[in-house]
Design a protein around this nucleic acid. Structure first.
Lengths: 238, 238
DNA sequence: TGATGCATGTATGTATACAAGAATTCAAAT
DNA sequence: ATTTGAATTCTTGTATACATACATGCATCA
């Protein structure tokens, strides 16, 4: 009954900023100042600061001491690591999920598939995104590893922006196809097949990252001026 | 060149408190107040608050609104999930590590083994703990997945207190034995064997958790009822 | 003309003041 | 004596003030 009706301003700031960042509303490399955000969100600097601190510890914001912060640029390296984490966790989860059978959860999963189809027909990537996320969460529940989802969600944050670009790119039908096969394998108890499908499914994000890095360089590299290819110093003399 | 010579008070607070918690210096269920910690650490409430906020988001501290916080009790459920995460990540990492060969890193790994032996001979569990952690980190480096360590470290936090109890319990020699076999397998490029060893090695923590939960109930359950008749009203209606 | 150093401005980092809610305690009544 | 309730006290949550460090721009010098 007594739900958390009013959550703290700091928590609100965190959620709003987190959503704005992963949805690319706040673009990578965009500077984020405490004062400006405070005015934007209608609170003082204190809760904003708390939110930025948490975002920084998650790698979504880069704070430089006394110099202000920027929305973290997407780093292919970090995405690659997060991908590794998520892939191995979800592959392990789906294997356990396939070895269980809970009709209620399976039904809920199939409902998310319907939501995804509807989202595609309406060309609404946001709805698809939410249903997708819920489906992956339900796999954890089915596996009896609900708590593992928190870790997956953490790693996902590093990839969500790439994923957002990917979904905007219109590969939704391919993803839905993956999902159908995946759910069928899990429901049929084919653990090995489900693992295989999950691995290839999650690899899709990474497959195209190079392409995206070229098409949206401003999200990946500091592109305040033209196309000065900076990159990392090649570590010349070993 | 320009290293971070002075890190912020908030960062200091976070590291100190984090260390105190995982080392059981701050015991589970112990209350943590901002004011008290601020005086203890010689700073104001602000940086302490920032640190507590981060610790809360990591699950090491439970904050209840306007009611103060406590060091999170060890929850077997959470430990089990973290165990699952760490196990799958490290097993995947060690497989890749076994398929690579970097003599410099392998040498560093063997050095940690020597440190561990020394720590055992001196019966210094803290030193053993540090060398152990470094060894696992070096496996990530060897696998070319250095960034994955951050995620493993996150999951580790949920288990480190159990691990600390376990190490105090004096199973160091068994752990070292695991480590030797593990390193040998990796060095020999036997990926499957290394995976097997890593999995059983990491399972040791969980194997004994029930025993520890019984031997140290105050760390696992709210057992502040030493002599006072407080706690939640038993809801015992007639 | 270009570079260096100083001054000023701006944003962060920390401390403190203030408000609101929760827990404890004390008192009174049954 | 137990229970209930109100008040007090302690704690957190937020705002604001102040100090410090970095950045930018201008002036001066080579």
């Amino acid at each position: 009954m007594t739900e958390k009706l009013q959550l703290s301003a700091a928590e609100r700031c965190y959620r709003i900023l987190s959503r704005k960042i992963v949805s690319l509303e706040l673009k990578p490399n965009e500077s984020v100042g405490e004062q400006a955000l405070a005015e934007l969100l209608g609170v003082s600097r204190t809760p904003v600061r708390e939110a930025l601190s948490r975002l920084s510890s998650e790698g979504l914001v880069d704070l430089r001491a006394r110099s202000g912060g920027i929305v973290s640029p997407i780093r292919p390296e970090a995405v690659r690591d997060a991908q590794f984490v998520r892939e191995n966790l979800e592959v392990a989860v789906v294997a356990e999920a396939a070895n269980r059978s809970n009709q209620r959860i399976l039904l809920a999963i199939r409902q998310t598939l319907e939501e995804q189809e509807l989202a595609i027909s309406e060309n609404n990537s946001s709805v698809f995104y939410l249903a997708d996320e819920r489906m992956h969460y339900l796999f954890c529940c089915l596996a009896g590893r609900e708590g593992v989802w928190d870790f997956i969600a953490d790693s996902k944050k590093h990839m969500d922006r790439v994923r957002r670009i990917s979904i905007q790119d219109g590969h939704l039908d391919e993803l839905l196809d993956d999902h159908h096969n995946l759910v069928d394998s899990v429901a049929a108890g084919k653990a090995a097949r489900a693992q295989e499908l999950m691995r290839s499914h999650l690899s899709r994000v990474l497959l195209n990252i190079e392409e995206y890095a070229h098409r949206f360089p401003q999200y990946f590299e500091i592109s305040d001026r033209s196309e000065t290819t900076i990159l990392k110093t090649p570590n010349a003399h070993g």
